[in-house]
Design a binder for these strands. Structure first.
Length: 933
RNA sequence: GCGGGUGUGGUGAAAUUGGUAGACACGCUAGACUUAGGAUCUAGUGCUGCGAGGCUUGGGGGUUCGAGUCCCUCCACCCGCACCA
């Protein structure tokens, strides 16, 4: 019987479906295991072969854990709100709800094709009102809570209000505006509006104002990467900074706990490092500088208060509030021109800029200790959102300040001493301060303490911890997102009552922006009449808590019952790409912490272990055409001179030697060889083009590795691969491609090897002509050894997510069993169980053929036995001066003296010794022998 | 600019702890079988040299009996940088 994967896979899938074999219950005597994929955004393009990489890994692991006796939760859903569906709606008029539904159906089909063991009864869509009811509900919990800095956790805001009534806010500095101070009497005297405005500055979800990239022509807000050189990527319209009303999450209050929490989770060091850097905790001081001839003070944050006497100038962000007040008349025009320039620059461009730019404001600050006048500049490299939006510049100790001073000829004070040579800044801290008044002779560390002490005493500065992380912008002026459960009346935001949730997204017919930078919701009469918030929530709202909903997806009374969240607890393994390192992962960590603080769940980190998968890139094919003559030139001849005969045979006189590259559909190319006829069919506009060939009569394309995308015609659809080779081959090939966590280009050619392997595996059981081969003979020692070593290796590799080496071990084992001509049930039954997580369909078929009633999915993972895997001898490499020259076989319990004697007597060793005695013999038991001459 | 990652044969890669570099595959070469082969099987395949051997893990330097692995330094490429999700 042949390996008919189409029939086998269809039957297996039907069987599993009929049996509802992937249904997971919330109560079980088995230990629980929760393994989760980052759920996808269902884009219109469907899945390409890169998407399932992580899903296959988690599926293998989930099946493995199940066979190891765990109750495994392995759900899937869709992150279904988002911008692409809305943009598609604007272009085509199709409602996002309809296209999303269609896309999800397609994703479903594709995922099922691959044979994943999801419990689809637990599926969630973030765009489903039954789901986003609870997204809105959690938002209200955040809205109705503040962060108590003394208790270091979220507390219901009602408790804060009670405190304000009896003692004002002296014990509760306002996180949103630290200038707000009031006592009991003042609080009680405030009207509702004033009270609510103050509370807004405390809430964990709050409304404020923030700058965005505003494109007037498109009437919309743009992401940084949609802005190129100050104009919109689409259409090239001007983009300016604009202040808009925005909702935020006060994630900065959780900064310290987000840092500490990293100590308790199993993420890669790189991932933790990225999160730490994003949070960007730095310890230093905030110092206030008086501005000469004004009443203004400018506060700066510095990590180096010890360098206070090296301050030669100050730099403000061009957006700094006090700029208008301090710029002198003489400089005003220049300052305004510079601000205009900066307004057109995205934050990304400003940070990446190598060219130094800036503008003197005409103002001088007064050095708080020395009284020296310090010129105040503005420059784009200082960002308004970081620290106080102003820095004290110490050129001798900071390289960027140094370059700035050199560029604008600002004199540099040396407080470092000899270690500062004048050519570049000295930023190390191993020196003794000079030119620094009362801190002369001190180390930077000692000086910093002393400076802070003195500033505190004199009242113009204090020690301060600063975070690079900013509060998370939580609103979008868009349609396709969760509506905020908020009503505005007289400028006060009133939360809807829980009973009014979900506040459903109204149906609209057009998706264009509303007036004054508002979103499409502002165009809806009913919505406006009800005074509902017109912003919607951003894409990450729904994805910040979906892992909780999977635990209890149908619950109508709460987002997930406490019993369910207590049972499933943390996600044991979370698989996804590193691109979510600082966005989604930080937000969901914060939401989890807030829900924990408010008593809704019993754990404050969502993901116990994080596994990152790499990206599968596309391998594009490029062809080159000479524009003049309409002739295509093969890539291997792109720099050749062409003979007259060749050109004449194509009916042209010459080609100008300059060819245009164009992407060609990778499906029309075999390796690098273009199928010219297929190409002409694909692009009828080139049906009359001529093709030069290389000496083998082929037209070869160039191969370029880049992101898989429709526009580059390099997308490979898993459905096509599965139709040709089957899901089991596809699954194993994706794993065989390389380590899970590295990026690699897709190459369809290599899949043959894995497919051949599965056919070879099949032939251990079935012969095309003779039929069923499995017999009941007793297994030999060699067969048992091969099997048990493989079980051990594959188990270990699966545990450490080294799926590529596990697949290779399957190949080694099947090669060995084929060579041994082994068709014994005693071996082959275990082999089916062993391969089941990797290739479940073929396993199911063979399991049935072996006469098993129950599905192989419910079988156990095979156990390896120590006695079959222990070796009692080892072939040692014998090296001379570290270079292996020969090999010798020794028993593992042989004594070193015996081994040395035999080694030295060996012919090859004798030859290299040339009669001399060795200086040293290194013997590492079980590893190697090295003779040093 | 800042942060993170990756560099090993013609290609994807392996080497889990400092101990035989290139397992397992793709591709290629030769052969067997076959009406046929895009099936299957056998042998070979890092580079170089007739050979003993020499060289080889992005470049350079170091530590070590021994380095792909540790340290220093330089280079190249990929990803993220807050409204893509």
């Amino acid at each position: 019987m042949e390996y008919n994967f189409q029939r086998i896979e269809r039957n297996a899938k039907n069987k599993w479906k009929e049996q509802g074999i992937y249904k997971v219950n919330n109560d079980s005597a088995k230990p629980k295991f929760y393994i989760l994929d980052m759920f996808p955004y269902p884009s219109g393009a469907g899945l390409h072969v890169g998407h399932p990489l992580g899903y296959i890994a988690s599926d293998i692991y989930a099946r493995y854990k199940r066979m190891k006796g765990f109750n495994v939760l392995h759900p899937m859903g869709f992150d279904a709100f988002g911008l692409p569906a809305e943009q598609y709606a604007i272009e085509t008029g199709q409602h996002p709800a309809d296209t999303t539904k269609k896309n999800i159906a397609r994703y479903h089909e594709q995922l099922d094709n691959i044979g994943f063991c999801y419990d689809w009864d637990r599926e969630v869509w973030t765009s489903d009102p039954k789901y986003y009811k609870w997204t809105q509900w959690i938002f209200l919990q955040l809205f109705n809570a503040y962060f108590d800095r003394k208790l270091n956790r979220a507390i219901p805001i009602d408790e804060l209000i009670a405190t304000f009534k009896t003692e004002g806010n002296s014990q509760y500095p306002c996180p949103g505006d630290d200038s707000i101070h009031f006592d009991t009497a003042a609080w009680n005297a405030y009207g509702e509006k004033e009270q609510q405005d103050i509370l807004m500055h405390y809430r964990l979800a709050f409304c404020g104002y923030g700058e965005v990239n505003w494109c007037e022509a498109l009437g919309t807000v743009l992401a940084n990467d949609e802005v190129v050189n100050g104009v919109s990527e689409r259409g090239g319209h001007p983009v300016l900074k604009k202040k808009l009303r925005q909702w935020y999450l006060r994630i900065t209050e959780y900064a310290d706990r987000l840092l500490q929490g990293l100590e308790t989770v199993d993420f890669s060091e790189a991932m933790k490092e990225m999160q730490r850097n994003w949070i960007g905790k730095s310890v230093g001081a905030q110092i206030s500088f008086k501005i000469q001839d004004t009443t203004s003070n400018i506060a700066v944050f510095t990590t180096r208060p010890d360098t206070i006497f090296g301050v030669d100038f100050m730099v403000l962000a061009p957006e700094h509030d006090l700029l208008a007040a301090i710029a002198t008349d003489a400089q005003k025009q220049k300052v305004e021109d510079y601000i205009t320039y900066v307004k057109s620059r995205s934050e990304r461009e400003r940070m990446a800029e190598k060219k130094i730019s800036g503008c003197f404001t005409g103002a001088y600050a007064i050095h708080p200790f020395s009284g020296k006048a310090i010129p105040v500049w503005i420059s784009e490299y200082v960002l308004a959102g970081y620290g106080t939006g102003a820095i004290m510049a110490v050129p001798c100790g900071d390289e960027r300040d140094h370059k700035f001073a050199q560029h604008f000829n600002i004199p540099i004070t040396n407080i470092i001493g000899e270690k500062y040579k004048g050519e570049e800044a000295y930023s190390e801290k191993d020196f003794t301060l000079v030119n620094s008044d009362f801190i002369n002779g001190l180390s930077p560390k000692e000086a910093a303490d002393k400076v802070i002490e003195r500033m505190l005493a004199e009242g113009f500065g204090e020690a301060k911890v600063n975070f690079k992380m900013r509060d998370a912008a939580f609103s979008r002026q868009r349609y396709w997102g969760e509506p905020f459960p908020i009503k505005w009346e007289n400028g006060i935001a009133y939360p809807l009552s829980e009973d009014d949730l979900p506040l459903e997204l109204p149906h609209v017919d057009q998706y264009g922006p509303g007036p004054d930078g508002e979103g499409p919701m502002a165009n809806i009469e009913d919505w406006k009449a009800n005074h509902y918030e017109t912003n919607t929530m951003p894409g990450y709202a729904g994805s910040s808590w979906y892992f909780l909903r999977f635990m209890d997806p149908k619950n109508k009374h709460t987002f997930a019952s406490r019993a369910a969240t207590d049972y499933w607890n943390q996600v044991d393994i979370y698989i996804g790409g590193t691109e979510h390192a600082v966005g989604h992962l930080l937000y969901s960590r914060m939401w989890t912490k807030a829900l924990y603080d408010l008593g809704y769940i019993g754990f404050d980190e969502p993901f116990k272990k994080l596994v990152n998968q790499g990206m599968i890139q596309g391998s594009s094919r490029i062809i080159y055409r000479d524009r003049e003559s309409n002739i295509f030139i093969p890539f291997d001849r792109i720099h050749d001179e062409f003979t007259l005969e060749e050109l004449q045979s194509l009916g042209v006189k010459s080609i100008d030697g300059w060819a245009d590259g164009m992407h060609v559909d990778v499906n029309l190319v075999d390796g690098l060889e273009l199928n010219i006829e297929a190409f002409k069919k694909w692009r009828p506009d080139f049906a009359n083009s001529k093709f030069l060939l290389n000496e083998n009569g082929k037209y070869l394309c160039e191969a370029v590795v880049e992101k898989m995308s429709k526009s580059k015609y390099n997308v490979v659809n898993p459905d096509d691969i599965i139709a040709q080779y089957g899901a089991d081959t596809f699954r194993m090939y994706e794993m065989f491609l390389g380590p899970l966590d590295v990026s690699k280009p897709w190459d369809t050619k290599g899949i043959e090897g894995v497919h051949r392997f599965l056919r070879k595996f099949w032939r251990l059981y079935n012969d095309d002509a003779k039929g069923w081969l499995v017999n009941d003979e007793a297994a030999t020692e060699a067969e048992l050894k091969a099997l048990h070593k493989s079980i051990k290796k594959i188990e270990q590799d699966t545990e450490r997510f080294s799926f590529n080496t596990a697949v290779s071990q399957f190949m080694i084992l099947v090669n060995e069993l084929s060579d041994l001509n082994c068709h014994k049930r005693a071996i082959l039954e275990s082999l089916v169980q062993l391969i089941c997580p990797y290739a479940p369909h073929i396993a199911e078929e063979l399991w049935a053929q072996l006469g098993k009633e129950a599905s192989v999915i419910t079988a156990e993972f095979p156990q390896w036995e120590e006695k079959y895997v222990t070796e009692n001898s080892k072939v040692y490499p014998v090296a001379i001066n570290g270079k292996t020259r020969t090999e010798l076989d020794f028993a593992l319990d042989a004594s070193q003296a015996d081994i040395e004697q035999i080694v030295l007597a060996n012919d090859v060793v004798q030859k290299w010794l040339e009669g001399n005695a060795p200086k040293k013999i290194i013997f590492v038991k079980g590893k190697m022998i090295n003779i040093v001459l």
